[in-house]
């Protein structure tokens, strides 16, 4: 049954996300209360765990060979809980990507970027004002980590080269839009 849920999740089905959230919420809280007493914070972490699950499944990086979904959620939750307690940060997302066991390859790419980087904040806003086509293409590439060839199929482009040049056009207009914002300050 969980397999079916996970299949739907990997296709970006939000109702599957909700089902999973409801299904494991109570057991998760019960489990986490062994380590920490603040229920609000536990709920917060549970949400981050579910989001991490969603992202991994979307990126087709979810391999549950070693255990069930529940085990997976619990161990990730435990990890996040301890990281968060260590960091004492209440509101920010902890860096999910630090989880070496669950995420390899792209870890180093985040090392030299400060999350509070002003350019990132500018980009967050600029992305919203980008054309729909560009948003979709870039989201698939950077967020869902789809390969250019996959994007070609998904968005029905004639050739991967078209995807690539479209992508660099989108990046260019993104750049221009934040440079404009910087100038107008």
């Amino acid at each position: 049954m969980d397999n079916n849920l996970l299949d739907r999740l990997s296709l970006g089905d939000n109702t599957a996300l909700e089902e999973i959230y409801r299904k494991y919420r109570a057991p998760f809280i019960q489990f986490a209360l062994k380590y920490h007493t603040d229920k609000n914070q536990i709920c917060d972490i549970y949400q981050d765990v579910i989001i991490a699950l969603y992202e991994k499944s979307m990126k087709q990086k979810l391999q549950l060979s070693s255990g069930s979904l529940k085990t997976y959620l619990f161990s990730m939750g435990k990890f996040m809980l301890f990281t968060r307690l260590k960091k004492n940060s209440n509101t920010d997302f902890i860096d999910i990507e630090n989880d070496q066991d669950l995420f390899e390859g792209l870890v180093e790419s985040f090392e030299f970027i400060d999350e509070k980087d002003p350019q990132v904040i500018l980009l967050e806003n600029a992305l919203e004002s980008l054309g729909k086509k560009c948003q979709e293409l870039l989201r698939l590439f950077y967020y869902e980590e789809k390969k250019i060839a996959e994007i070609q199929v998904l968005l029905a482009y004639n050739h991967t080269d078209v995807v690539k040049s479209q992508k660099s056009r989108c990046l260019k207009s993104l750049r221009e839009s934040i440079e404009l914002k910087l100038k107008n300050r």
Partner: peptide, 16 residues
């Protein structure tokens, strides 16, 4: 490279 990494991060933050 850094610009694109930041774009990636921005997407991630927005989606989250």
């Amino acid at each position: 490279v850094v610009f694109q990494q930041k774009t990636k991060l921005a997407f991630q933050n927005n989606q989250r």
